[in-house]
Structures are given as structure tokens and as C-alpha cells.
């Protein structure tokens, strides 16, 4: 069974089994019905995007603070679906990684479908020091490798985090780039290098 479908069924079962805490409030039910009416497909942004998947449903219904047991099970589920590179090499070229981190392209109705999407990383994170136009939705990643090292475990963590941030923290605000097929294996490797390669400006 496809991982996403499995997650949705599990989440749906959990919602059904859970008492009032996870049920929709009256206002929320009305908001969902209203949004179903009020959105139309434009470009690649299809109308069905307002519907939540299983993980989103859990986060939405718990104010992003799901009960620990549910969070752990669903994180493990997300983790199990992370695909690590077959060749075992997790670090690519940091220069290519910087370009991907800069690009905010992807998934909006004004983006041309089919083109490779960017990482949006600078929208939310400080990364290399030369780029001073960075967002603060996520923590600073400057000196990431210098501070955290670049052992095999650390590489695996960063690869996994970019592939699916929700496998570590269920309701993280960071998108699931690998999970949704936004970033391909080679692109994620380049981003791992941007954060962990000692030669990367991030670690100078």
C-alpha cells in the first residue's frame, strides 16, 4: 500500500476513535464546507488542494499539538517512507545546493508546471552569510555543519529532515520536500552538502 494512503487511513481511524478533542468544532466544520465552495482551480493549483490529508487533519484539529502517542506513531510512519539514496552517498555539491536554496519556484498557480522546483530555503532560514535577504520562519542554519559536525548520522538526519520534516516533528511548519516529490534525490544531496560540507560558506 502506498505510504500516503496508509497514513491517511491511520489518521482517519485515529480521528474517528478519538473523543471530542479531535473532533471538528462547529466553526471549523463550517469553515471547511465554505472553503470547498469558494476555491477554484487555477494553473497547477487544483481546487482539491483545500482538502487536508491525514497528517494535516491531525495537526489542524489539535492546534499543531497532537497527543504524544499519536505524534510518535505518525512520525514513525512518515519516517518509514523516507527514501534514502541507494548508493549511500548523502552529500552532493554545495554550489548546486546554494542555487536550489535560493529558488522559491514551485507549486503556486503562477508557476509553470513541469519545471524543476526550488527549495524555498532562504524564505524561512538564514543559511550562507553572503545572502542577507533571508526569512525567519525557521531557525538560522548558519554554521550548521560547524556546530553539529558532518558524521554519517548527521548527514542522515539532514537528508531526512529535508525529505520529510514531519518525520521528526509531526506538525513542523517546514514542507515535506521529498515526500511530496518537490525535491529529487540529487537536489536533496546538494542541500545536505550546503549545510554540512566543510567547504561550504555556511561552515566558514
Amino acid at each position: 500500500m502506498n505510504a500516503t494512503i496508509r497514513i491517511s487511513i491511520l489518521a482517519a481511524a485515529m480521528i474517528a476513535a478519538a473523543p471530542a478533542a479531535l473532533a471538528d468544532s462547529d466553526h471549523r466544520a463550517k469553515a471547511l464546507a465554505m472553503m470547498k465552495q469558494d476555491f477554484v482551480t487555477k494553473g497547477q493549483a487544483t481546487a482539491d488542494r483545500v482538502s487536508e490529508d491525514g497528517l494535516q487533519a491531525i495537526c489542524n484539529r489539535t492546534g499543531n499539538k497532537p497527543p504524544e502517542k499519536i505524534a510518535q506513531r505518525l512520525e514513525a510512519d512518515q519516517m518509514a517512507a523516507v527514501k534514502y539514496p541507494a548508493d549511500g552517498k548523502l552529500m552532493g555539491d554545495w554550489k548546486a545546493g546554494e542555487k536550489i536554496a535560493q529558488s522559491g519556484r514551485g507549486f503556486t498557480w503562477s508557476d509553470e508546471p513541469g519545471l524543476p522546483v526550488g527549495g524555498n530555503c532562504y524564505n524561512c532560514h538564514q543559511i550562507a552569510p553572503k545572502e542577507t535577504s533571508f526569512g525567519t520562519v525557521g531557525p538560522s542554519l548558519f554554521h550548521f555543519g560547524k556546530l553539529r559536525g558532518n558524521t554519517a548520522d548527521m548527514q542522515k538526519y539532514v537528508y531526512g529532515k529535508i525529505y520529510n520534516a514531519k518525520s521528526f516533528s509531526l506538525c513542523s511548519e517546514m514542507p515535506r520536500f521529498g515526500h511530496i516529490g518537490a525535491l529529487k534525490e540529487a537536489q536533496i544531496k546538494h542541500l545536505v552538502a550546503l549545510l554540512l560540507d566543510p567547504e561550504s560558506p555556511v561552515n566558514k
Binding site: V50, C59, G135, V137, P175
Partner: peptide, 29 residues
Amino acid sequence: IGREVTNHRAGPYDFSCNTCHGADGKRIR
């Protein structure tokens, strides 16, 4: 109902209004 709309995470990036407007002092770029 409007408050619920601002909380509603969905779409490929799991974003809601609050991803960008839900805490003090945040920036995009």
C-alpha cells in the same frame, strides 16, 4: 469561521496563514 480559515493547513506545502502570520517578528526573505 475566519479564525478557523487562518488555522487551516493544507496543500502541497502544508501551509496555513499562520505559517507566515502566526507569530510575532517573522519574515519571509
